[in-house]
Design a binder for these strands. Structure first.
Ligand SMILES: [Zn+2]
Ligand SMILES: [Zn+2]
Length: 710
DNA sequence: AGCACGCCGACT
DNA sequence: GTCGGCGTGCTC
């Protein structure tokens, strides 16, 4: 009589709902199996990496057909809490468990050939880290140096928080410059007095700069910190993940992708700038790192702190209703006053240049007279100006002066943007911002042969030219992804601004992030209207957060006795609520107004949404596919008073890189009802698909939970 | 998803 | 006669 076999179930990185059973040869692998082990398995005609999710002594599958596990990774199994998190994410976002877990494991641990030398790698990395560890820590503000408002906030955090095993969600709301970071870093430091404790600090992609890293390090001089973001090399990422999942690192600082890092001794989570859209993953399993972090804190009974000057409506409402604790930090730490907000009505001729004005530019001005004169004043005061426009390139479209030709992308339903020489290459080009296609600029109109082609509208490049012409003696710098790619990255450009080597900065929203500039006198936003004018119901909420953020840049000038700067917004609709609340610096007023709007319309956070995306060669087929799905949902009785299914519509940018896209919106006031409907939809679609491509008409489909843009 | 198997049209 | 189109089914 033979021993009972050891059978393990393994999930792999494929959109397959089921796991696969394998035999475990304990002698060969040198270990008994545990749930959470990472293994290499033979699958079809190749070898793949998988994760053990079940251990037993029998299989539903014919036992003699089972293959044997090839190799076991030299790692401890993922801890049970992390596996619960993965399981939840897989269900909630309607993706297979394997394709949810495996992408969160760094590549270094998915190369079975390298597993044998893995520990040598870790050793050499350890030596390197000792050298790197000498980076200067800076920006420490210890508990005694906090202002009274900060001290109160910290007190509130600590009073309850020392109790173990207690879920708390806390919103820390305070303006830019109110010192939120110092509060939560001091809080984390006190939690880390427990030697084995681990904490997770999530920050938006763009905020995770070397400066921030140094600043965080300053608070934890004797602790090990692991940094995880997309810019970290594969090897360093593998090491950081290893240190987190083994409990060797106490502070895990990272972006969205760090939210799913296993941490066996997790004691607290901070999500900084919790409203930031970069927390939402936009491909693969489309999770929200913030929402997963909240679930994780709840599941593991640890506190989570959400920090923002302009919270997401979801978080703000939870705090208002008492579901979250609410800590306010409204005293400006550095004694700087709030920036003055100025709305410039572009329809008012008084604000525009007239031909007689001495300072009017030769061509039609790209900015209002009111703004131009404010910039002149700022220059005279030896202060810097930031001018924002969220449009890269020279002009958003090229046109023919004789016929109706416009520069369109051949692969997308969009215009190609003109970039002048130097930005994307040596020559001027037309570039599609959706598919990346780059074409040379035609000398003649392709339709009528006319040689006179004109640009329509303007982007950062053209604005830069115009500004240089209007203030020939000013030092002008352009900051956008094009200019930062050309120089040594955005950091180098930010440093120029910080060092005062620049008078006027022209750029996209990216200028507003990260850095702490000292001498900004003026911030101008030129394209607020185009950001507000959008089919997406969250457009106003996003714009408000962006405007508050850039206003914070102007107000941040910390030199004592100095006034804060000014923010100028050019708009046709100064009476719009977004601007009116901004004018009064009334964040809560805006939130309350938006909340009541959403409630009335039954939109999130007062309801829950999901999108079914469909993509195919022709829009027709995609729409028909979604229509059939809707009909199916109806016949199955899924559409009820509590579950609304809209008609399928083309996506805002319908065609991208040759494929045409449509979407179906599903909405419910009841989370559970929505979840069940989505699971039914997933099952139905899977049945007629291979992976996520339908058998008939070859439609690529995807379910997205809690979409942030509709 | 990725891949092999298999059954029909048009092309050396 | 065979090359290749993609519909179908399988992967422990
Ligand atoms: Zn023409
Ligand atoms: Zn394109």
């Amino acid at each position: 009589m033979k021993h009972k076999p050891i059978v393990v179930q393994v999930v792999i990185d494929k959109p397959l709902a089921q796991g696969f059973d394998y035999l475990w040869d304990a002698e060969k692998l040198g270990n008994l199996p545990e749930i959470g082990h990472i293994v290499e398995v033979p699958f079809a005609r190749s070898k793949v990496i998988g994760l053990v999710i079940k251990v037993s002594d029998h299989s539903e599958y014919e036992i003699e057909k089972l293959k044997t596990i090839d190799r076991l990774a030299p790692l401890p199994p993922l801890d049970p809490a992390s596996l619960r998190l993965m399981n939840f994410a897989s269900q909630y976002y309607v993706h297979a468990l394997g394709e949810t877990i495996l992408p969160t494991i760094p590549k270094m641990w998915k190369k079975a050939e390298d597993w044998e030398k893995a520990h040598k790698k870790l050793e050499s990395a350890g030596k390197q880290a000792k050298k790197d560890g000498n980076v200067i820590a800076e920006g420490l503000i210890n508990q005694d140096q906090l202002n009274s408002s900060q001290k109160n906030a910290l007190q509130a955090l600590l009073s309850e928080g020392q109790k173990r095993n207690l879920f708390r969600a806390i919103l820390l709301q305070g303006q830019t410059g109110s010192g939120k970071t110092a509060v939560f870093l001091n809080w984390l430091a006190s939690i880390l007095q427990d030697e084995s404790a681990q904490v997770l600090l999530l920050v938006p992609e763009i905020n995770l700069t070397p400066q921030l890293e140094r600043r965080v390090r300053a608070y934890f001089p004797n602790k090990k910190m692991a940094v995880l973001h997309s810019g970290v090399s594969e090897k360093k990422r593998g090491v950081a993940w290893y240190e987190a999942m083994t409990g060797k690192a106490q502070i895990i600082l990272g972006t969205r992708l760090a939210a799913l890092t296993p941490m066996p001794n997790l004691r607290a989570i901070v999500v900084d700038e919790e409203h930031d859209p970069s927390y939402k993953q936009q491909d693969g399993t489309r999770y929200s790192a913030r929402d997963l972090a909240i679930w994780r804190a709840h599941d593991q009974k640890t506190p989570i702190l959400l920090s923002s000057a302009t919270p997401s409506l979801e978080t703000w409402m939870a705090a208002q209703s008492g579901r979250y604790e609410y800590i306010r930090l409204d005293q400006r730490a550095q004694g700087a006053s709030l920036p003055g907000v100025h709305l410039i009505n572009t329809r008012d001729p008084q604000n525009q240049f007239s031909p007689g004005d001495a300072d009017a530019p030769k061509q039609k001005s790209l900015i209002t007279k009111t703004l131009a004169r404010a910039i002149t004043k700022t220059l005279k005061a030896k202060k810097q100006s930031l001018i924002l426009i969220n449009r890269r390139g020279y002009a958003p479209v090229l046109s023919c002066s004789a016929c109706s030709w416009l520069s369109k992308c051949t692969q997308c339903s969009t215009y190609t943007v003109m970039h002048k020489a130097g930005a994307l290459g040596r020559r001027s080009v037309l570039s599609c911002h959706h598919c990346g296609l780059i074409k040379s600029i035609p000398s003649f109109c392709p339709d009528c042969g006319n040689a006179d082609l004109k640009t329509l509208g303007h982007g950062t490049q053209k604005l830069e030219d115009a500004i240089e012409e209007m203030w020939p003696h000013a030092r002008v710098l352009r900051v956008d992804t094009d200019s930062s790619r050309k120089s040594k990255g955005a950091e180098a450009l930010f440093q120029e601004i910080h060092d005062g080597n620049v008078d006027i900065v022209v750029g996209t929203q990216m200028i507003a992030k990260g850095h702490d500039y000292q001498n900004i006198g003026l911030v101008a936003v030129l394209d607020a209207d185009s950001r507000l004018y959008s089919a997406d119901f969250r457009a106003a909420e996003r714009l408000f957060a962006q405007l508050v953020q850039v206003a914070g840049r102007a107000g941040r000038s910390g030199t004592a006795g100095d006034n804060g700067g000014d923010i100028f917004i050019e708009t046709q609709y100064p009476e719009s609520p977004v601007f009116q609340y901004l004018l009064r610096h009334d964040v809560d007023g805006f939130m309350a107004f938006t909340a009541s709007e959403r409630e009335e319309a039954g939109l999130p956070p007062c309801s829950y949404q999901a999108l079914v995306h469909a993509e195919s060669k022709s829009l027709d087929k995609a729409i028909r596919f979604l229509t059939e799905l809707k009909v199916h949902m109806k016949t199955k009785g899924l559409i009820t008073k509590e579950l609304k299914v809209y008609d399928p519509v083309p996506k805002p940018v319908m065609r991208v890189a040759g494929s045409e896209r449509a979407q179906l919106l599903i909405e419910s006031v009841n989370r559970k009802v929505l979840q069940e409907a989505l699971e039914a939809v997933d099952l139905e679609l899977r049945q007629d698909s291979q992976g996520r491509i339908s058998k008939v008409s070859r439609i690529r489909w995807l379910i997205e939970r809690d979409p942030i843009a509709i």
